[in-house]
C-alpha cells in the first residue's frame, strides 16, 4: 500500500476554488453563485476569468438556491457557495422543493463545515448538515478530506447530472492524496490495509485516521483505513469487504453522530453484516468558540480519540 505523506498544509476550500477555476476554463455551462462570501469560498479566480458566469446574490441564501435551480433550466450547471450552515439548514425547504424534488442539476458547495470553523462558534459550526442532506431523496453527499481531493471532487461533480452537496472546511490541513487521483462519486478509497479493525473516516478525520493507524501499528494492531468521501450513495461493498476481514469498525466524522456517516455505516452493517462499531463524532451537542485543534481535542475528534475507539471496539469482538 502507498504510504500517505503530508505534502504541505492547505485548506480544502482552496481546493474547491481551484476546481471551480478549472471548470471555468473547461466547461462553459458551469456558473457560480455566492451569497457575499467570495473570499471565504475562494471563488476569486473563477470570477476574474468568467465575470459573466458569476452571480453575486448578496446575503440572501434562499434566493440563491432558487436562482440556481432556475439557472439549470437553460442547461446551466450552477455551483452555489456559502458556509455549510447557510447552505443547508437555512435553506432546507428551498433545497428540498426547488432542487431535490425538482431534480435540478445544482451543486451546493459548502465551506466552513464542522467544528474546525473555529472561533466564530456554534452559530456557524454546523454539525448536522450531512444528516440534513443525506435524507433528501436523490441528493449526493460528498465530504472531502484534503485540498487535492476537494479539487478533484469539484471537477467531477460537474459531469454528474443531479443535485450534489459538496462539503469542505476552513483550516489548512494535511494535503496527502495524490494530485492526479481520479475522483469517482460513490467509490470508497482504501488508504491502508489492515486486519484487526476498520476505520471508516470522512473529511478532516481521514488524516487523523491515518495517524491513528500508525499509532495502532506501534501497539501491534493492524488497522484498515477507508476514506469515504461520498456518504451518499455509500460504498457498502467496500465497507462490507473490509469488516469481513476485521470484524469491527470505527467511524470518524466531524459531524454529529446522530445523522452522520456513522449511522449510514451502522445501517448497512445491521442489515448485512452486524459487527461491533464505535462512533467518533460530536455527541448531540453544539460546538463553541476555540481554535480548531482545541475544539477537535475537546470534542474527541482526533487521532488519539480514534486510536482509543479502535482499541475499545476490538475488545468487543
Amino acid at each position: 500500500m502507498k504510504k500517505y505523506i503530508d505534502t504541505g498544509k492547505k485548506d480544502t476550500r482552496s481546493g474547491f476554488g481551484a476546481g471551480l477555476a478549472h471548470l471555468g476554463r473547461t466547461n462553459k455551462n458551469v456558473v457560480a453563485l455566492c451569497a457575499d462570501l467570495i473570499g471565504s469560498l475562494k471563488m476569486d479566480e473563477f470570477i476574474a476569468e468568467n465575470p459573466e458566469r458569476f452571480y453575486q446574490i448578496g446575503i440572501a441564501e434562499a434566493n440563491m438556491i432558487g436562482i440556481a435551480a432556475g439557472l439549470t433550466i437553460g442547461g446551466k450547471i450552477p455551483f452555489t457557495g456559502t458556509f455549510a450552515n447557510f447552505s443547508t439548514g437555512r435553506v432546507y425547504d428551498q433545497i428540498r422543493q426547488s432542487v431535490a424534488y425538482s431534480n435540478k442539476n445544482v451543486k451546493i458547495c459548502a465551506s466552513h463545515a464542522g467544528l474546525t470553523l473555529g472561533e466564530d462558534g456554534a452559530t456557524h459550526q454546523i454539525l448536522e448538515d450531512i444528516g440534513l442532506m443525506k435524507m433528501l431523496p436523490g441528493m449526493v453527499v460528498i465530504n472531502t478530506c484534503d485540498y487535492n481531493q476537494t479539487k478533484a471532487a469539484t471537477i467531477a461533480i460537474a459531469d454528474y447530472h443531479g443535485p450534489v452537496y459538496l462539503r469542505f472546511g476552513r483550516p489548512a490541513v494535511a494535503n496527502f492524496t495524490p494530485p492526479d487521483a481520479p475522483f469517482e462519486i460513490g467509490k470508497a478509497l482504501l488508504l491502508q490495509e489492515g486486519t484487526d479493525v476498520t476505520i471508516v473516516a470522512t473529511g478532516h478525520l481521514v488524516w487523523e485516521a491515518l495517524i491513528a493507524a500508525d499509532a495502532l501499528a506501534e501497539k501491534g494492531i493492524s488497522a484498515e483505513v477507508i476514506n469515504i468521501h461520498t456518504i451518499k450513495p455509500l460504498d457498502e461493498a467496500a465497507i462490507l469487504a473490509s469488516v469481513a476481514k476485521t470484524s469491527c469498525v470505527v467511524t470518524a466524522e466531524e459531524h454529529n453522530i446522530l445523522g452522520g456517516l456513522g449511522e449510514s455505516v451502522a445501517r448497512t452493517l445491521a442489515s448485512k453484516h452486524p459487527v461491533p462499531q464505535e462512533f467518533i463524532g460530536t455527541n448531540d451537542t453544539f460546538g463553541e468558540s476555540g481554535t480548531p485543534a482545541q475544539l477537535m481535542e475537546k470534542y474527541g475528534l482526533n487521532a488519539a480519540a480514534i486510536t482509543k475507539a479502535c482499541e475499545k471496539v476490538i475488545k468487543r469482538k
Binding site: 434566493n63 440563491m64 440556481a68 432556475g70 439557472l71 433550466i73 446551466k76 450552477p78 422543493q97 426547488s98
Partner: peptide
C-alpha cells in the same frame, strides 16, 4: 419546477431569466 411550498417561484424565475440572458 415543483411548487407548493410558497415563496420560491420568483427566485426560480429569475434564475431561468438569467440563463436566457446567458
Amino acid at each position: 419546477m415543483a411548487s407548493g411550498s410558497l415563496g420560491q417561484g420568483m427566485s426560480v424565475a429569475i434564475g431561468a431569466a438569467q440563463a436566457k440572458k446567458l
